[in-house]
Amino acid sequence: MFRNNYDNDSVTFSPQGRIFQVEYAAEAVKQGSVVVGIASKTHVVLVAIKRNAEELSSYQKKLFPIDEHVGIAIAGLTSDARVLSNFMKQQCLGHRLTYGRNMPVRTLVDMIGSKAQINTQHYGKRPYGVGLLVAGVDSAGPHLFEFQPSGMTEEMIAFAIGARSQMARTYLERNIDKFADCDREGLIRHGLRALKESLVQDRELTVDNTSVGVTGIVKAEDGSFKVEPFQVYDQQDVMAWIESVGDDKEGGAGDAGEGEGEGEGEDMEVDS
């Protein structure tokens, strides 16, 4: 029995004008745990929920530094992401070597866009099974980009991809006006709140399952602007942020706050 005749490769259109392999790749992104990115005028943050395959295993990394001014958050196949991450790292180093500057974020994102598109138009190739949020700063300020396996890239003010990310996007849409003037800490808190929206019931943000990545532009003492290098925060470094969004209702999360407030943070049991 045939369910679908048009999904054996990525070079054949279906009669409806769809390329199923590319759409399936987009499904792989939705299997990944949720990541959120938000940009303000000065900073751009990435926050992510890490998953562990089982109780005894370690948590899968979700945030990767690319260069001092760029980092990515991934949702989907981690191994595919690592290929893209290595590629981006090489490109950034190469650009720095030939021009002596940070690679413009848009240029970098266009490169992985073109790279991924090739996989959707050649027989025997497979689209990347991963979506990215690319956060970076350049001389035009902070940027946040979304990348999809189809090769689509788009600049965003705030976005979320991965499992149940619609809830996070709803939060972001509701608060979109607040982001531009947000400071660094405020932006991180917005990110964490959006993340919380996407959690299934009786799941919490813990120091074990939360990652935060930040880069931005900071004013130095001499008045010039410097890049705050992209850095990933895990474990104890994210505890204060998690606690600060432990029981607040800011941002007007519409749903009823189910029993949070008690025992947040440190001794939280590892979720499965």
Binding site: A140, G141, H143, E155
Partner: peptide
Amino acid sequence: STSAAAASPEGQGEQGAATSAPAGKLN
């Protein structure tokens, strides 16, 4: 293409002062 970016807000103004050359251009 960078200047048409959606999320690069008016904040550019103050950063523009930091780098005299227009944003993204080779100095």
